[in-house]
């Protein structure tokens, strides 16, 4: 009999603990933050910042008087689902990932395997990514300091049919540049034409690269 009583007491204690825990955690999480949006710093230093740690928040009931602002207003302002155009656009999210989104209005696209062909213009190669019909955007792995262009289309019997070409982009660097040439000048000197001829390797490289991209994109179009 004593054993049962002990078990009962322990069970009761656990239940009380759970109930109390549930309610306290609930009130903690419901707190809404109406503070000024502290720009980048909040995320950059958020965890680091001593004054911003969760356990410092007071355990007071902050429910009274709070309402969800502008919730129903948001639904009032709808945006179009699609714009009835064909496009694909490409951005570098960071040195490791590209972001692309598109809209394609083409029957064949939806009846065959949709594909994004990503041109790596530094290596003059491409990779094909099979995508879903329902997808509208995609993150794609990439290399730092590299040129890319995306082409969206579909594959029919192994042949790629392009439908839209994206803008060309260069991904950011993720480490210091290997190029250590130095050119020191004033804005006036810089604005003079001479500067371009006085072999600045970065400018030269850029020029060469621009030519190569031109050549690449030409072959890119012709290939199809």
């Amino acid at each position: 009999m004593d054993v049962f009583l002990n078990i009962l007491i322990i069970l009761l204690a656990i239940i009380i603990f759970l109930v109390v825990y549930y309610y306290t955690s609930k009130t903690d999480h419901k707190r809404k933050d109406y503070h000024l949006p502290l720009n980048q710093l909040e995320l950059e230093a958020g965890a680091e910042l001593g004054v911003d740690t969760r356990d410092m928040q007071p355990k007071v009931d902050r429910q009274q008087g709070t309402t969800d602002i502008s919730k129903n207003v948001t639904e009032h302002y709808s945006l179009p689902d699609k714009y009835n155009e064909n496009f694909i656009r490409l951005f570098a999210r960071d040195p490791a990932y590209l972001y692309t989104y598109w809209e394609i209005n083409n029957q064949d696209f939806y009846h065959h395997q949709p594909v994004i062909r990503l041109f790596d213009q530094s290596e003059n190669s491409y990779t094909d990514l099979a995508i879903d019909h329902g997808a509208r955007d995609w993150y794609i792995k990439c290399k730092a300091n590299n040129c890319y262009q995306a082409v969206i289309g579909y594959k029919k019997e192994g042949i790629f049919y392009p439908l839209s070409y994206s803008n060309q982009i260069r991904t950011p660097l993720d480490r210091p540049s290997d190029l250590i040439d130095q050119n020191w000048m004033t804005i006036e000197e810089l604005s003079q034409f001479k500067y371009r001829i006085e072999v600045d390797s970065s400018a030269m490289l850029k020029q060469m690269e621009a030519k190569r991209i031109e050549a690449d994109s030409f072959s890119l179009v012709k290939k199809e």
Partner: peptide
Amino acid sequence: YPRNQVSMPTESSWGYKGYHEVWLNGSNE
């Protein structure tokens, strides 16, 4: 100091992780 080195900064931001992810991710893309 009007004379300075000529160099091209790389694409970046001062946000978390140093590039655009804070402004381009699942919550706001």
